[in-house]
Amino acid sequence: MKKISILILALVFISCKSEAQQDKENAEEYKIQKTESKWKAELTNQEFRILRKAETERPFSSPLNDIKQPGVFVCAACGNELYETEHKFDSGTGWPSFDRAVENSLAFSSDRKLGYQRSELLCGDCGGHLGHIFDDGPKETTGKRHCINGAALEFIPKEKS
């Protein structure tokens, strides 16, 4: 019995993945890096919780759900251009949804917060948490749904010519 307990304990330690180490390694990849206190000073409480702590806003709470006018959605933390209105669609989920991002604007990770692995979307410039990507988007386009927290974005309307 003692050997089994030691074996189980060893397996638990081996299988543990240090998220802190992963975050430290990922942080070195981003061109915009700031301390947690600097991010906290620059972002609203909700933006900080979502972008830096990977929380999720309540569904149907973002005013960005209703935006249909031409423009670009940028990272609320660093201004990186992430999504264009032409690729936005109503997924019925309560979060702004897009079928694709601006090319080379995102970074990808994964999380297991709900007990299964999900593909996490991050800002490619600052590493801020945006949301997740799913395979239930419009079949006539990419088939992907980028489910994004509205508080992680700011909208910049396209100037009329």
Rank of each mutant, 00 (worst) to 15 (best):
residue 3 K to Q: 01
residue 4 I to T: 00
residue 4 I to G: 02
residue 5 S to H: 03
residue 14 I to Y: 13
residue 19 E to I: 14
residue 20 A to R: 10
residue 22 Q to W: 10
residue 25 E to R: 11
residue 26 N to P: 01
residue 31 K to L: 04
residue 31 K to F: 05
residue 32 I to H: 04
residue 34 K to L: 07
residue 38 K to C: 03
residue 39 W to L: 11
residue 39 W to E: 11
residue 41 A to V: 12
residue 42 E to Y: 07
residue 45 N to S: 15
residue 48 F to A: 14
residue 50 I to K: 06
residue 56 T to S: 14
residue 57 E to F: 05
residue 59 P to Q: 09
residue 59 P to T: 04
residue 60 F to C: 02
residue 62 S to G: 03
residue 62 S to Y: 06
residue 64 L to I: 10
residue 65 N to L: 15
residue 66 D to I: 12
residue 71 G to K: 07
residue 75 C to R: 00
residue 77 A to N: 02
residue 77 A to H: 01
residue 77 A to D: 00
residue 78 C to P: 07
residue 79 G to Y: 08
residue 85 T to F: 11
residue 89 F to E: 12
residue 92 G to M: 11
residue 95 W to Y: 04
residue 95 W to M: 03
residue 95 W to V: 03
residue 96 P to M: 12
residue 96 P to A: 09
residue 98 F to W: 11
residue 100 R to H: 13
residue 101 A to M: 09
residue 101 A to I: 07
residue 103 E to L: 10
residue 104 N to C: 05
residue 105 S to M: 11
residue 107 A to F: 00
residue 108 F to C: 02
residue 109 S to F: 01
residue 113 K to H: 06
residue 115 G to L: 12
residue 115 G to Y: 07
residue 117 Q to M: 15
residue 120 E to A: 01
residue 120 E to H: 01
residue 121 L to N: 02
residue 122 L to T: 00
residue 124 G to S: 10
residue 124 G to T: 06
residue 124 G to V: 03
residue 124 G to A: 06
residue 126 C to I: 03
residue 126 C to Q: 01
residue 130 L to Q: 04
residue 131 G to R: 02
residue 132 H to R: 01
residue 134 F to N: 09
residue 135 D to S: 13
residue 136 D to H: 09
residue 136 D to Q: 09
residue 142 T to R: 08
residue 142 T to Y: 07
residue 145 R to S: 09
residue 146 H to N: 12
residue 150 G to S: 10
residue 151 A to S: 13
residue 152 A to D: 12
residue 152 A to H: 08
residue 155 F to K: 14
residue 155 F to T: 10
residue 159 E to V: 13
residue 160 K to C: 06
residue 160 K to L: 12
